[in-house]
């Protein structure tokens, strides 16, 4: 795994393997997920892969009723909204993710600040092309 480039393709490949991965700058120690190949803090480009714990809290969310084609194809829409959000990981970085295990048709029941953990329900064998980072209430 050390050999994969620090790219979005690798990030999604790891998610398909049920791993939430980030990159750490060997120069200054800054941590990023999704991974970066160039450190915007010290501009170094020596990175190493880090496995994230997959725990965090919900920092922002929405329940989407007017869905894009990629989601209507999965059966979502006005009568079946879905929740997406931004999760602040215990390690610090924030990630955009699907939020499952919540009632998206009752947004008031979902709280900013609630503890969440990563799950990997969309594992496929298409090299990560169909995988989505997903969290559920912890």
């Amino acid at each position: 795994m050390e050999d994969l480039p620090f790219s979005d393709v690798s990030y999604n490949k790891y998610i398909a393997e049920e791993k939430l991965m980030g990159s750490r700058c060997r120069g200054c120690g800054a941590l990023f997920t999704p991974p970066r190949s160039i450190c915007p803090v010290c501009f170094g480009s020596a990175m190493e892969w880090v496995t994230m714990e997959g725990k965090g809290k919900l920092a922002a969310f929405t329940c989407i009723f007017i869905a894009p084609p990629s989601m209507t194809a999965q059966g979502y829409g006005r009568n079946r909204p879905y929740c997406v959000g931004v999760v602040e990981l215990v390690e610090g970085p924030r990630v955009a993710a699907r939020i499952e295990g919540v009632d998206a048709s009752n947004p008031l029941s979902i709280k900013v600040g609630m503890a969440v953990r990563a799950i990997f329900p969309y594992r496929t064998d298409k090299g990560g092309a169909d995988s989505y980072l997903t969290f559920e209430p912890a």
Partner: peptide, 20 residues
């Protein structure tokens, strides 16, 4: 690209800003 991939729409991003 990270937001579009998990199903965020344009209104969805601003909606999430609102919840925060």
């Amino acid at each position: 690209p990270y937001e579009g991939r998990v199903g965020f729409t344009f209104p969805g991003v601003f909606a999430a800003v609102a919840t925060a």
